[in-house]
């Protein structure tokens, strides 16, 4: 499952711009990009005491996982489309397999396995270090062309990725 796609510093910068600088909530969570490839994205959210859902156990709240998975899925959709377009989550189903371990960062992976003219279909997983030992998984659909806004940075990120692929 390891990503074959190698990020150049330029791609990473463009993606960070798109993800972190332009999405206030991702900034608030301290989310970072781990990797990206056509139709796929990997993000990481650090463990933070502000995200705790149960003060007795220190386990982070499921909502944090939902949020980061939703964002990872959205990013995978963006990376699956030829042209950057506004997208919106239509539905998202999350299954929680086991509690996250307190103190550990969470990695998420999402793959947009199908897009139609209007809808994108995505699957995602959240884990600590091993994707085969998941904490949560999700499946979602996104509306393509949801509104007139176009996420800043997406076009730049895609151009860098296409270039990298050609040279790679």
């Amino acid at each position: 499952m390891a990503a074959e796609f190698k990020m150049t510093p330029e791609t990473m910068m463009a993606l960070k711009e798109m993800l972190i600088q332009h999405v206030p909530h991702m900034r608030a969570l301290g989310v970072e990009i781990v990797n990206a490839a056509p139709a796929q994205a990997w993000l990481r959210v650090p463990y933070d005491e502000r995200f705790i859902g149960n003060a007795e156990t220190g386990v982070i709240h499921g909502g944090v996982i939902t949020t980061v998975l939703d964002n990872t899925c959205g990013m995978a959709v963006q990376l699956a489309m030829d042209e950057p377009q506004a997208i919106a989550t239509l539905d998202l189903r999350i299954d929680y397999m086991k509690p996250a371990t307190p103190g550990l960062a969470l990695t998420t992976h999402a793959h947009c396995y199908k897009t139609t003219r209007n809808i994108a279909f995505v699957r995602g997983t959240a884990y600590h270090t091993d994707i085969n030992d998941p904490i949560a998984s999700c499946v979602g659909t996104f509306m393509i062309g949801a509104n007139r806004t176009v996420p800043t940075g997406v076009a730049a990120a895609k151009a860098f990725m296409a270039k990298q692929k050609k040279e790679g």
């Binding site: 999405v23 206030p24 909530h25 900034r27 909502g63 939703d70 964002n71 989550t89 806004t149 800043t152």
Partner: peptide, 24 residues
Amino acid sequence: DQKLIGNPLLPALHGGVIGAFLEM
């Protein structure tokens, strides 16, 4: 709060935040 925004251009709340709020 500004930090709950997912799409700053609309602007709109982050979908994940709404999901988390419903879960809570």
